[in-house]
Design a protein around this nucleic acid. Structure first.
Lengths: 124, 124
DNA sequence: GATCGTTGGTATCCGTTGGTTACCAGAACA
DNA sequence: TGTTCTGGTAACCAACGGATACCAACGATC
């Protein structure tokens, strides 16, 4: 029997999932892999400023959560392909709604920041 | 003129917004304040395990982004009410979609974790 | 034959960040 | 007089993220 979902309770398993979303790199990887299957270094080149360590670390935890599939091919040098599982695809769809929000409201946020930084911050 | 939105480019302002989502506490605060206006310590009691420091810090940056409104009342002791702005409400709605995903897929994720931790991890 | 570049990582260090604890003012309450 | 409530700030410390170096094994270049 599951305990009542309550993201504000630290013991709730839903919070684990929310903490995963609270991972900048995980979000970017999910969006990227939803577009196409990619190899390790291809992902690395596309997501600017991600270090090898964070990429392999994040991919590993995404794989553990059943969101990303990892396939190794015995080529030379070895090829490793990453793609989304069906579960991962459903999450990616939800996460893309966030990027849409970001793209359409970025100007309002930046305007608010400028107002706040000027000192007087009146809000509506 | 805005540069083309590209969350994978570190210079893109959209990434700033995405980084904000990548803040565990910010997400929880947004959801909480979408339900009701709350005072500082009321928020603190509801969101378990958040420290005073992180709460005031996160609230401050949410206010700067124009997502949260802060109102001080000259009672004694002083009362500070936090509520969402209209901008904040639209983001909260988007973020709640994520918690819905979390609640409905938490079992699948946990099952994947158990499979992964047992060693052999086959994926579908 | 030596060096470089490619693959996909791991190991190490170090600075920034998050979290814990202590402390503050000011009034009510016991 | 001490305690509690309010909403914070300051200091300290562990933990995490990020940069750098390094690894094996092979192809291509010099």
């Amino acid at each position: 029997m599951l305990q009542r979902p309550d993201p504000f309770n630290a013991q709730c398993p839903t919070r684990q999932v929310l903490d995963r979303i609270g991972d900048k790199w995980a979000v970017l990887i999910l969006i990227m892999l939803d577009r196409e299957t990619l190899r390790f270094n291809a992902l690395r080149r596309r997501i600017e400023n991600i270090s090898q360590k964070m990429l392999s670390q994040t991919l590993k935890s995404l794989e553990r959560d059943g969101l990303v599939r990892r396939e190794v091919f015995a080529t030379v040098p070895v090829t490793v392909e990453y793609s989304l599982t069906e579960l991962g695809r459903t999450l990616a769809k939800t996460v893309e709604a966030l990027t849409l929000w970001a793209e359409s409201h970025i100007e309002a946020v930046q305007e608010a920041q400028r107002r706040y930084d000027r000192g007087g911050h009146e809000m509506n």
